[in-house]
Design a protein around this nucleic acid. Sequence first.
RNA 1: GCGCUCGUAGCUCAACCGGAUAGAGCACACGCCUUCUAAGCGUGUGGUUGCAGGUUCGAGUCCUGCCGGGCGUGCCA
Length: 577
Amino acid sequence: MPPFLHHISRSGDIVFMKQQIAHLLEAAANQLKAEGFIPTEHAIRVMVDNTRDKSHGDLASNLALTLAKPCQSNPRAVAEKLIAALPDNDVVSKVEIAGPGFINFYLAGESSAEIVADILSAGSQFGTNNSGERKKVQVEFVSANPTGPLHVGHGRNAALGDSLCRLLSANGWQPTREFYYNDAGAQINNLAVSVQSRIQGLTPDDESWPADGYRGEYIIELAKAYMAGETVRADDREVTAAADAEDFDAIREFAIAYLRHEQDLDLKAFDVHFDVYFLESSLYSDGLVDATVKQLVENGYTYEDGGAMWLKTTEFGDDKDRVMRKKDGGYTYFLPDVAYHKNKFERGFDRVINVQGSDHHSTVTRVRAGLQALKEGIPEGFPDYSLYQMIRVMRDGEEVKISKRAGSYVTMRELIEEAGRDATRYFLISRRADAQIVFDIDLATSKSNENPVYYIQYAHARVFGVLAKVAEQGLSFNTEAGLAALGKLDLDAERELMTQLRRYPDTVKAAADNLEPAMIATYLKDLAGLFHSYYNSNKMLVDEEDVRNARLVLSKAVAQVLANGLALLGVSAPETM
RNA sequence: GCGCUCGUAGCUCAACCGGAUAGAGCACACGCCUUCUAAGCGUGUGGUUGCAGGUUCGAGUCCUGCCGGGCGUGCCA
């Protein structure tokens, strides 16, 4: 018996059933190689898929189709040989050849039901794995400059980034959540000028209002707080206002703290928390920017032209070189970005992921090019990016243009207050990052029942509802007895539920591998749907004790997986609704 | 112009590395609460997966070219 077969047993690691089947097929293929049926030089790549149609069994492989050509045989004949060569095992109850040559696997009934016991014993840990091997991953997200309230776009960023961290944790990684912001540049001065203008009683309509000033109403509140001598405490700083209209530096420092604090409130309402706040100014004060420039110059990737210093990013795949130091001596935004990412690399993270709107996708090439030009052995694909598409906001059937200048955008706070945290978060996370989503404010707020998050939460609450009924109706429920009686569950709906439950660990892995939390949302919607359908057409609290216990145990497992999945999205799993 | 990206039912979206008959919700029509929560379930209507080629045993998925949307193409970030 090949060594890997030690892992294949009914009592073993049942959750990665795909891998187990793949191992079986691999063993069969290797035997056919040894027999000379498959050319020895042919690399075998085994793929096992979930079936869409239950008449195709539980899992299927296309291996015979891919081997037909190298074996100079037809797929169905190859499939027959593969099946004959499968090692003995107790996880598969039936194997069939179907269609053009698919091999369909039916899992043994007990094997299928065992997932329920696995779920209940693992509890909140069910579905997690250690593929990240406790390695450190840093995820930078939100990273909004403190010049205004967070809007819907930041909301998508926050939901995606935080959920990604939860997913990575579930896959055995150790995430660090990091927030990077500019506390010293031109935009911050611009902010301070705007506040000072408001203190002086100016409005955006006045002629002397600063050209690029921030017009939003929040600047008025900020100015009032400053003149009232208030103290603001943000997560990463605390400032007491000097209340001096002439003290520009004091205004700036207070404004930063004030707006950071406002952002903190939104993020907390969203249940998003950061481990590290990184200041762009520290890159200068700690000499990281200068060191980066020096290194780039020494490596010969820079040149002067038109009074500016350029970086030869074209040597690393960019379509044109980029200015790194402007004529006026200041640096363009991407130079500090390179210094920052050099710093991330040197901090020893095994992996770094940036969550950004796709309107910044051009920085990807630039930052990576800058890092390559440092010649420090930073991997070419460093850092990873999760780019998400812009959100279009609809209100009263019309598109709301998001613009800080005009002050006409939808804030995160507005959304959370009107639609609630769960609904907002779910909506923002439930679509693939590369989909341009349409956020209909009226739908999200007034008719929030249409948000599928309630559909999922309701399935969870229903389980708790029926469990509460057990005692009310003077019945009994015993988990052990239920587990022992799972074999009594032979309805199609029950088998389908167990199949879907078994897919959860694969989904957790796939969602992390693809940096796509939305895959969890899709999975949960499907699971909830199967449960609602099952619940509606079958009574849980039947007289027959075995069946009652078994159904309740299955329902508990469904609730557990729903709760685990919702937790990955940062959405609550209420027991009553 | 060039680069990236998206285009799936009337609307909003699924479809894991190419797999078998492309799925949900909303909307529309008709059903299901004296029985565990109807925020639920069932049945039906609705598709040339933008168009045209190509690769493959097999394409919504990969390649090429068009068409359409978004973003980028700043010594803005």
